[in-house]
């Protein structure tokens, strides 16, 4: 197995405030990895550092063996690193279709873009129905699907998904996770961040627990569910 993304001794922060301490992580190709942990402890920051939105202060990130540290966010996207940001961030005044077209920004040729758009519509029939609708008028769940669909348009090698269940009703979360389960067949490697491990356990191969900007535990979903102390301490469940 080759590693899809490899992180070594990564440190990052905002101003002089350090939020990530010496993070190391190795994700093999084709794996689904979950990162869980309490709110505000660096999970999202880690994804932002990986995607280049937030600069790292030290440490290195490799993708398929190539260092990508010096690259800006849009250059990393071109390398196939896709991030689906927290809280939708759809283009609010554009239609569903235009949002998807923006997802295909890097794709070459009209036919290729059409193929990808149709693929997304196949996966999310609901989006196909809403094709000409302005994104801001979509429901929360639809916006989340649009966000994921737009990310799929890029057809990258790795998808970083930031809290896909955030702020959604349980029923809608079910729908989102159905889609994520399907994603396994499309995108080779997934890195999903969640506050709550319950849903992640169903789809992840490996789970990391993050607290105060460092990994304090990692293991398989089964190991996590057997370790009730851990869950009680960190996640208050």
């Amino acid at each position: 197995m080759t590693s899809a993304i490899q992180v070594s001794n990564l440190t990052a922060g905002y101003g002089r405030r350090q939020v990530l301490h010496n993070i190391s992580l190795d994700i093999e190709e084709g794996m689904v990895v979950g990162i869980i942990g309490p709110n505000g402890h660096g999970k999202s920051s880690l994804l932002k550092v990986l995607s280049g939105l937030v600069p790292a202060t030290s440490g290195q990130v490799f993708m398929g063996g190539v260092a990508i540290d010096g690259m800006s966010a849009h250059q990393r996207v071109a390398k196939g690193l896709v991030q689906i940001p927290q809280g939708d961030l759809v283009f609010p005044d554009m239609t569903v279709e235009e949002n998807l077209l923006m997802g295909g920004y890097l794709a070459q040729g009209r036919t290729e873009i059409d193929r990808r758009v149709n693929k997304v519509y196949e996966m999310f029939p609901r989006l196909a129905e809403r094709r000409p609708q302005i994104a801001r008028t979509l429901s929360g769940g639809e916006r989340r699907m649009l966000g994921i669909g737009r990310g799929l348009m890029i057809e990258g090698q790795i998808m970083l998904i930031d809290e896909p269940s955030l702020g959604l009703a349980p029923k809608v979360i079910d729908m989102v996770y159905e889609v994520l389960a399907k994603l396994r067949s499309v995108s080779p490697t997934l890195l999903v961040v969640e506050e709550n491990p319950v849903r992640l356990q169903a789809i992840a191969d490996r789970i990391y627990l993050m607290d105060n900007g460092e990994f304090v535990w990692n293991g398989t979903p089964d190991e996590l569910s057997r370790n009730s102390d851990l869950i009680a301490t960190y996640l208050g469940a």
């Binding site: 709110n39 505000g40 607290d211 460092e214 304090v216 535990w217 990692n218 190991e223 960190y234």
Partner: peptide, 24 residues
Amino acid sequence: VDFREFQRLRNPKKHPLGTSGNNG
């Protein structure tokens, strides 16, 4: 600023399992 985070930053207390990594 999340209120919980505010409190945490004001009273930084060690997390219950100590700082050494893997406890699983």
